[in-house]
């Protein structure tokens, strides 16, 4: 069986099933985050689309209205049957809120005056957990395992740069899984984009067929 030779585009029906999978995956991720690690996050109904890299910035600009041109991001890639580049966007200047959510302000670490390490490392931890939770649940539902690269965080960088750094070819169509998230009782919300690489499309198609088979 050679997966490469199969049809490598995703049709409307595939996207519909994927929407269902994402609803379940993100719902479970939010439930488990609350249950196991006391992070109470609301994830909006995910928006699934096939877009190009340049369209990501357009989407972001419309979704992140009211935000500065600068954003704080956590980027993490994961690979396996499902190879994706995930990026979590927060509005700029939300470091203190993030630190307070994670409770890292109580770690009593002496931070050097000239470094923004505390904010950066805290953003890394939160991003790692959120991306890990969402990606982990998607992988579980589609019955596969993924490996994670170490996450990378940047505080207050220009939005264009954040997108530029995503591991996507300019010409490629990608599968964009997008969700808005907000923290209960906190004044913090942001956007998660999981960009599925074209090379995974064939596998996704198969996995979706399998996923549907259990309901037939």
């Amino acid at each position: 069986m050679d997966i490469q030779e199969k049809d490598q585009t995703l049709g409307a029906e595939d996207l519909e099933i994927l929407q269902e999978v994402m609803n379940i995956a993100f719902g479970r991720a939010a439930a488990d985050l609350a249950k196991f690690i006391n992070i109470f996050v609301k994830l909006s109904v995910p928006h699934i689309s096939l877009i190009s890299k340049s369209e990501i910035s357009e989407t972001l600009r419309s979704e992140l209205e009211g935000m500065d041109q600068n954003v704080s991001v956590v980027r993490q890639d994961f690979w396996g049957d499902l190879t994706c580049s995930a990026v979590l966007f927060f509005p700029a200047h939300t470091e203190n809120e993030i630190i307070s959510i994670m409770g890292t302000d109580e770690l009593n670490v002496e931070f050097n005056e000239i470094s923004t390490s505390l904010a950066q490392e805290t953003l890394l931890e939160l991003g790692n957990i959120l991306i890990g939770a969402c990606a982990g649940k998607i992988a579980q539902l589609l019955e596969t395992n993924v490996s994670f690269s170490p996450p990378f965080a940047a505080i207050n960088e220009p939005m264009g740069e954040a997108i530029e750094q995503m591991d996507i070819h300019e010409s490629d169509q990608i599968l964009s899984l997008q969700t808005q998230f907000s923290f209960e009782e906190r004044n913090l919300s942001g956007l998660l984009i999981i960009a599925g690489q074209k090379s995974s499309f064939a596998w996704i198609k198969e996995a979706l067929t399998k996923f549907m088979a259990q309901y037939e």
Binding site: S117, L124, I129, A133, K137, A139
Partner: peptide
């Protein structure tokens, strides 16, 4: 923190990094 990190890995099968800079 440590318990949360371990639980996160058991629950989500993700990787959790414990950086020197923070911890």
């Amino acid at each position: 923190h440590f318990n949360r990190s371990i639980k996160s890995v058991f629950t989500f099968s993700n990787m959790v990094f414990y950086s020197q800079k923070l911890h």
